[in-house]
Every structure is written in structure tokens, then in C-alpha cells.
Design a protein around this nucleic acid. Sequence first.
DNA 1: GATAGTTTCATACAACTGTTTGAAATGCAA
DNA 2: TTGCATTTCAAACAGTTGTATGAAACTATC
Lengths: 220, 220
Amino acid sequence: MPSDHTRSAILAAAERLYADRGFGDVTLRDIVAEANVNLAAVNYHFGSKDELIAELFVTRSIATNRERLRELKAAEEAGGGRAPIEVILRALVRPTLRGCLGPENQRSTAARFMIRASIESVPPIRRIKNREIDHLRKFAGAMRRSLPDRSEVDIYWGLNFALAMAHHTIRESERLIKLSDGLCDLDDVEDVVQRVVSVATMALTAGRSEAKAPTRVAAR
Amino acid sequence: MPSDHTRSAILAAAERLYADRGFGDVTLRDIVAEANVNLAAVNYHFGSKDELIAELFVTRSIATNRERLRELKAAEEAGGGRAPIEVILRALVRPTLRGCLGPENQRSTAARFMIRASIESVPPIRRIKNREIDHLRKFAGAMRRSLPDRSEVDIYWGLNFALAMAHHTIRESERLIKLSDGLCDLDDVEDVVQRVVSVATMALTAGRSEAKAPTRVAAR
DNA sequence: GATAGTTTCATACAACTGTTTGAAATGCAA
DNA sequence: TTGCATTTCAAACAGTTGTATGAAACTATC
């Protein structure tokens, strides 16, 4: 069973290259060169380029979702079925932020690959991505249990904004550093997590506890 | 004088196709077919495919930035050099949101093209994009004048989060609709703007004693 | 109306893409 | 060893890409 080596070498090389340079710029020849295997090996082991990408994505997708759900479940069980909204949000955004930010040398290829996937959205990935909705629904459910007084629409908007801040900060991290002349320290991952979580929490709790609700007018 | 027609036909067709399908999937042959011109016309009028994309991007970039700055300046002049933070944020996110959301038939190709550009980030665009930082700095400046007590870091984070929510909502609008089973109404642009602005405002004013509920200014 | 300059056109080009092929090499069971 | 299946390999394939070419069709000036 030494044949397994070629297969996993391709997977590793492909993930690294995709994470670094995106899907558009990486060819099969780049991948096999990086993996030191023959060109035909990709089609032999995976069938096609798209299936290679798909396998890469499902593997990482499952792993990421499992990590997020593990944090979420632990929190809900500790709270007897209800977790504080901050903890839920933290479970949602922290795994990704930890993988993509922080000191350069300890960023995970896996997380960076997932970010690429969420950005470039090539056909094979787009097809799979719809399943992620079910995963997000679990978080929406937990949030609803945590904030039973909140309207369902507000829950979805809060979830959307939390993901927005985490994702965008990762994608545009370089620009933010340049814009702020280095003032914003993206290496301090826990600080970033805290900022995202606290803003998202405010978005979800404003008007219920101490803050006043934003007056919303139906523009129609 | 009919020669100018070819040039602008190419620009229009390219912008439409890029906005709809992204840069990766659109070839020169797609563009010239859509524009009903000869294949060689692109290289004749623009030099290369990259220069065509670049011209498209700088044109739209200037226009978008001008629109945002117009709203910002008007607000600051009306307030004697200081505009309320909500108004500043609204000037930042509304032009883009208006162009990319709302009823399908009235979305502007220009805005959708700019979103594509901000997502896919092909080389010719990435080179130009660094100038946008100067543009964002103007907004950071206005925000600093509006919230003089706020630390500079917080200003940049607030700016980052505001753009994050606007951008992400546009990019993932389909998913948000599906996730919420249609509960989130993205056709009501002013409501989306209000949500983004009010959360960003909270992020920027939280903790300050005079933090008050964001007030709606204009209901289009 | 001839001429010079611009613009269009069909076509060819060279480079690159993912994929296939068929033969060599390898591993493993008898 | 002999067989048989799996895996590797160099080479070629068919398709697409952006770009270049040179002749034709224009336009405007004299």
C-alpha cells in the first residue's frame, strides 16, 4: 500500500497551492510539480480536476463544521440547553479566525483553503456549498434558544453580520493593516474574536436589555 | 465617428458579462459576441484583455468614490465640519448597497461589476486597488472628527466592520435568503442600509456615555 | 476621384488547459 | 519464478485561450 503516498501528496500540494494562489491561477501541472508526481496521477486517483477540488473541500468542510459544532454543543450542554449568545457567536467565528489570522507561520493551510473556497467559489465547490446551510441552521437554532424574545429575522441578520465581520476581516486583513498604518493588530486573534463577537452581540441584543432599539421605518 | 461605437460596445458588453459571470468565466470571444464586434477589436482598441479590465475598473472606481464623497461632503458641510456618525456610515455603504440589492431589474451593472472586482481580484485590478485606501482614509478622517473621543483603532475597526456587513450581505445575499427561508427581505434596500448603519454605529459608540440609539435620517 | 489614415475583418498563431492513451514499472499472490 | 492487478510514466490529444497578421473596408482630406 505505498500507492497511498501519491494520492495524499497530491491532496497536500493542491491544498497548499490553492490556499496560496487561488483556484484560478493553479493548474494541474503546478500541482503535480509541487507534489513530485506524474501529471496523469491526478486523473487516475481523482477522476478529474473538479473532483479533486471537491474532495478537498468536503474534507475540510466536515472538519471545520465539526470543530464549530463541538464548541457549540459543549456550551449548550453546560448551560442546560441554552448557551449565552456570546459563546455561540464565539463558536461560530473563532475556528476560522484562528486558522486564518495570527502569526504567519502558524496559520493553517486548511483554513486558508476554506477562505479561498468561500471567496472564489468555483463550480465544484458551489455545488457542495449548499449543504453548509444546514450547518448554519444549527447555529441559528442555538441563537434562537438563547434569545427567545428576539424575532427570527433579527437572528438571521445577526448571524449574517457575525459571519460578515469575521470573513471580511480575514479577506481584507492586509488592507486593514495598511489603512490603519499597523494600528490594528491582527496577530492578536483573541482580540479580533472579541471585537467581532461583541459587535455581533450588540446587534442581536440591542433594544432588549439596556440599549434602545433602533427605530425602524418601513420604507415602502 | 462610428468607430467610437465599437469601443463603447465592447466596454458595455464586457462590464455586463463580468458582472454576471465573473472574470474567470468570461473570454474575449464571449465579449465580442455580446458586443457584435470582431475579435481583434479588443486588442486594437484596448491593447490587451487586462487593459480592458483596468479601464473598466478605474472608470467605475472613480464614479463610485465620487458618489460616496459627494454624500459625505454634503453631510459634513451641513454640520459645520462634523457629520453625525450615522450619516457618514450611510454615505459609505448606501451607494453600493443600492446598486447591488433591490429589485432585480433595477440593479446597476456598474455596482455589480464593482462587487465582482472586489471579490475575484484579478491582477490588473489588484494593481489599481491600492489607491482605494486613500479614499477610505477620507472616511476615517470624517469618522474621527465625528467621534473625537474614540480611539483611532476603534475607528478603523468600525469602518472595517461597516464595509464587512455591506459587502458580505451583497455577496451572500442568496444564501441569506435561503437560510432565512425568505424572511430577510433584501429587496428593501433602505432597511438593509439601516441595519448595517445601526450596527456599525453601535460598534463605534458602545461604551460611550452619550451612546444613543441611531436615528433614521432619510427614508427614501 | 485619388490618397493617406483609420478601423474592421477573417484567419492564423503559439501557448496553455484538462484529459487520455498505451506501454512500462511495481506490488503481491500462487 | 509465473501470472495478474495496480500504479506510474512519457507522450500525445483535443480544446480553449489571448494575441498577431495582413488584407479588405471604410473615412476624410486634398
